[in-house]
Amino acid sequence: MGDFSHSCQHPQYDPQSTELHAECRTYGFFGTYQPTTLLLDQYIGNINGRLMFVSYRFSATCKNCRLGGEGNILQCYCETENGDWISTELALDERIENNDGHLKFK
């Protein structure tokens, strides 16, 4: 499990670039927070209307995406194989982690 939200703050999602932005804590006793980004389109896809980590380029068939929960849930409307649009969400903490102040896909 990634659990980036436990050591990162102020998560934001940019729908134009599909980047997740956050300030993540570095290692060490006096770890500081530094800005970092991760391009979600490289790791998340749309499989018949569902956001999943097993593919990529979700932005091609999803719209109105935003962060929900405490900034650790990606919520979108995604197109199904038959052309319907359905609401879907994905817990980003499942596969995104903070690695010494940098967002990483796990």
Score class of each variant (00 low, 15 high):
H102T: 09
Q9H: 05
T26S: 13
L20I: 00
N99Q: 10
T37L: 09
E94F: 12
Y43T: 01
C76V: 11
G83F: 07
Q75D: 06
K104A: 07
R66S: 15
Q75H: 03
L92C: 03
Y33P: 00
C78R: 02
S87W: 06
Q12V: 12
A60K: 08
G45Y: 01
H21C: 05
L39C: 09
C76T: 05
Q42T: 03
Q9E: 11
Q12C: 14
R66I: 14
I44S: 04
E70P: 12
D41T: 11
I96A: 01
D84G: 14
R25E: 12
N48G: 11
F105D: 02
C62P: 15
L74C: 06
S5P: 15
M52T: 08
D100R: 01
N98L: 03
N46H: 10
F29R: 14
D84Q: 14
P15M: 06
V54L: 10
D93I: 09
E97M: 14
S55E: 08
F58S: 04
T18H: 12
E79L: 11
G31E: 01
F29Y: 10
C78T: 04
A22W: 00
H21L: 15
Q34M: 09
S87N: 09
C65M: 08
E79D: 04
L40M: 07
Y27N: 11
H6Q: 14
N64A: 11
Q34P: 14
